[in-house]
Design a protein around this nucleic acid. Structure first.
Lengths: 338, 338
DNA sequence: TTGAAAGCGCTAACAA
DNA sequence: TTGTTAGCGCTTTCAA
């Protein structure tokens, strides 16, 4: 591995000159420049980014922290982030915490360690509050994507989850449903709670009762929602006629459980999800859902973050709210059910 | 941001001592140790990993390079990689090249830049050969996962794709199919070509003809395969009775196209995919496919890589071949078709 | 137009 | 048991 010194020696110039041609940061005479470039080629030289980073105090890398890369929700955000990061000369590192706290902490600590210039965080839970608060206090560039942490003044970009849940619920209510179950996700997630709030509000506004065991957690996962659905529907006397699941992945579990139980969707059971994953649009699924604008969330988050970094503007915070849209497909039908 | 100097000053010890307690690399008297630890806490000190990296010449990070994180195939590999990396004290950075060459080059260059200690590469194409060759020649730790680059002696871990394609084809042949189409992926991918090879071999061994336009590229994507299927099936006189798609994502496109065309699966058309994605196992899909052991690929790749790094063993190369398994579900039926 | 050299924050060899 | 200091590879100030 050759260093800038080797290049300088071979090109018969100073290391400073090499640095100048490398970074195009000062005029260098054509002859010297040419010698340097040749030496670089001959030695297959690539500047050490670590040394450079130490000196200039930035890395030109941004981390996107996700809790589960296996959930198709996140890759879409990641893709968008990478796109805009690249355009601005940044590299995106996706880090998967696998829902584990120590991983999460390690990931955000990259900021203090000097390894990354900023972080887009899609995975804060409530008990990370003070950790995040300290980072913000110390002016590290962070934006929360699809997450909220109330009480902390920081940058966020989220969809309008309350309204989304209201829309989903009203859709069902307008179809005549009165017995609606709501399958939630991880209780400590802000987004989760906002959706519950929206659901409860819509129900209340329509003077509809909400049963306690019809508001339970499928953890936004397929299998858990599948199991929970079987539980929920086993008593044929008092069944919900509709289930809203907090995620499409979970809604898929609902659909499959209903299928295995011989319950027809949408005739006997309406189901709606959240997210609008690719799978949900497939011919054999056709799930009615709320589209969370993932690509836009990723994009806006990255734009916001890079803006903060570039302008060194860590004092003003922006809170961007994106609309979510109800996508009506086939899992709710259009019939009025008693 | 405080540095090791600040800690030394505040704890009234030398920077060396601070470093020793930080890294637990030499005995330090309890009193001093305590003072150092207090200072660290008080100043909220976190060592600068960049400076450390420059000094010790490693980063304890490994990159996983993928072409499209949005393809559910890769997140599974990523998850496995992260798991084993973490256990060995490494951090995993997933980098998404979005199928673009400049991104790919940037990603592997991290090795020369000193930003990462090793790379697991799931996205080499044929024209990256010399780039990879140089890296290998210079002893950088790299393993190819789910990719091959023949002619270069390097570490690889892949499933047995030829056999997998043979198994898939024979399954169809045994069911009585004679008119089998094979929908391929990106032509320059080694895995793709191995699968074609397996298909061709099985057909030849069974004395079955292969039509040229029945061997076309759906690019391993949903939409492309959907479109291609419509094309393929529009002439009802001379249709294949079975389609093998090089990926489950593509096979889903085949399934949906058939559905939209009113062609019944499996009665009128059998379809088999490759990968065994989660979606494929869903109740409404039930795709017959070849399971590529993604988790195991990720795991073995990372173990191999870390082993190389740890033992500085960049001379010996291992080529791991994992079995792939035919998963029979419902898209081929069990009837013999003419 | 160019070069010498300081210094980024850390580790570790050497000295005490 | 602890401290001093060189040096990792680079950028950039200052001087020429």
């Amino acid at each position: 591995m050759s260093t800038i010194k080797d290049i300088a020696k071979r090109a018969n110039v100073s290391v400073a000159t090499v640095s100048y041609v490398l970074n195009n940061t000062r005029f260098v005479s054509p002859e010297k420049k040419k010698r340097v470039e040749e030496a670089i080629k001959e030695l297959n030289y690539v500047p050490n980014a670590v040394a450079r980073g130490l000196r200039v105090k930035n890395s030109k890398v941004i981390s996107l922290v996700v809790s589960d890369i296996t959930n198709p929700f996140y890759p879409d955000i990641a893709k968008a982030c990478e796109q805009v990061a690249y355009q601005s000369g940044y590299t995106l590192n996706i880090v998967n915490t696998n829902d584990q706290d120590d991983r999460f902490i390690k990931a955000v600590m990259q900021l203090r360690e000097g390894k990354v210039d900023g972080i887009i965080n899609t995975t804060v839970l409530d008990h990370h509050r003070s950790l995040m608060e300290n980072l913000i206090k110390d002016k590290y560039p962070i934006v929360l994507a699809h997450r909220l942490l109330d009480g902390i003044n920081m940058d966020t970009v989220v969809a309008d989850n309350i309204q989304a849940a209201i829309d989903a619920t009203n859709h069902l209510i307008n179809l005549g449903h009165k017995k609606i179950a709501f399958m939630t996700g991880v209780t400590k997630s802000s987004i989760n709670n906002l959706r519950i709030k929206g659901f409860l509000k819509a129900m209340k506004d329509a003077n509809l009762p909400t049963k306690e065991d019809w508001l339970a957690s499928g953890q936004a996962k397929y299998q858990q929602s599948y199991d929970l659905t079987k539980e929920l529907l086993k008593n044929s006397n008092n069944r919900p006629t509709a289930i809203i699941n907090i995620s499409d992945l979970g809604a898929l579990g609902v659909l499959d459980a209903a299928g295995d139980l011989g319950i027809m969707v949408p005739e006997e059971l309406a189901v709606v999800g959240f997210d609008d994953l690719f799978i949900s649009s497939m011919r054999s699924v056709q799930l009615t859902t709320i589209r969370i604008p993932r690509y836009e969330i990723g994009q806006k988050s990255m734009e916001l973050l890079i803006d903060k970094i570039t302008n060194n503007d860590t004092n003003n915070h922006h809170n961007i709210l994106l609309p979510a849209e109800l996508i009506v497909r086939k899992t709710c039908g259009s019939r009025i059910i008693d």
